[in-house]
Nucleic acid binder design. Structure first.
Lengths: 194, 194
DNA sequence: TAAAAAAATTAATCTAGATTAACATATGAA
DNA sequence: TTCATATGTTAATCTAGATTAATTTTTTTA
């Protein structure tokens, strides 16, 4: 593995902690690169999430397909985000969620085992990952509260503002499923909003 | 600080990592004990969440009071759980959420600064806290999906099963606000369920 | 460039759960 | 033990958003 290919991941880590050249080489030695076409899956529910993915470029969505086959978007992922089915990844049991590429997508792949090894070698990264989890939890809690306290329109306007770069990359019915409404109702709202 | 008073916290940590006697003493030296009466607040929105609380006994709720003054329960906390306004705690900015005791409650208090010092002294705990965050994130994601894919009744039945010990300690209108429904509708459902 | 498939729109109808308001029952403090 | 406050119930009415189904537009592929 060439260090230059993992440059974006190193930059990502260095927002939280400086890395020596040796450490950069060590990180590079634990990860691999993946290139996926639009429509392909990084993970399918029913399989174990053996890897966590750092998105270099492109766009993915994590979604859950319920008993009736209705899809619910847990989250989108764009460059500089980590994606996985975290429950499956930490337990190494089968996943409930799917991760699908919505555009051609380049990822850096860190397997469960390699992550363990990496954290042995650079224990300081434990803290870096912890910080990412803290931020993810804050966002998730906010989304729960917003679901209770805001109308669909308010949630859509907020999404539009905050995830403008995501909105342009994904079909509208997936935005609807992220907001917890039907595609028909989102369409109606958009018309109203002009 | 006497070690015996923080025994429940040590037991809690030892589920994830063994601790030497020295480490136990170190942990004890960084925390303090708090005793709160029913109705008292561990945190009020508008203040900075300077501490994270480990619940020894009792019961609390974390809630958000929206623009209209409607209260939304983010979470309940019972013994062996950590509670804080995590956003406020990690940023040390003012909190959006309130943490209120629903019964007389004993907590172990770890301040932001002391946590930093503790993690310097026992960096291995970084991983322990990381694991707790992972679990909390899994639960939060599940709650988002359930909000989208289940009916109010299904969510209530699930809550009843999983949080039986919480349900008996808290007023019904708080359960309703946790489920994202009105107290009137919960009352109606309970009648239906017999 | 045409045909097929995927995505988005429209409009009518329906319903889970909200709102309102009046009343009932606990709980707790003096 | 009584009054006040907090909590819970009931029932009528209302509405945000779902459902259904037909149609249009866009994108993809051959």
């Amino acid at each position: 593995m060439n260090v230059s290919e993992v440059e974006s991941l190193l930059v990502h880590f260095e927002k939280d902690t400086p890395l020596s050249n040796l450490e950069k080489l060590q990180i590079a030695s634990f990860v691999s690169i993946g290139s996926f076409k639009k429509g392909e899956y990084l993970l399918r529910s029913g399989n174990v999430c053996k890897e966590t993915f750092f998105i270099v470029s492109g766009c993915v969505r994590i979604y859950y397909s319920d008993q009736k086959g209705v899809e619910h978007t847990i989250n989108f992922g764009i460059s500089d985000w980590w994606v996985s089915d975290i429950k499956s990844f930490i337990t190494q049991e089968v996943a409930d969620y799917n991760i699908q590429c919505l555009a051609n997508t380049e990822v850096i792949i860190l397997s469960f085992d390699k992550q363990e090894q990496l954290l042995q070698v650079i224990p300081r990264l434990e803290r870096v990952f912890k910080k990412k989890l803290e931020k993810a939890l804050v966002v998730a809690q906010k989304r729960i509260v917003d679901g209770f306290s805001l109308t669909a329109k308010e949630r859509y306007l907020q999404f539009r503002e905050r995830y403008a770069s995501v909105e342009v990359m994904v079909p509208q019915y997936m935005v609807a499923s992220y907001l917890g409404i039907t595609k028909e109702f989102l369409s109606k709202m958009k018309k109203e909003l002009g």
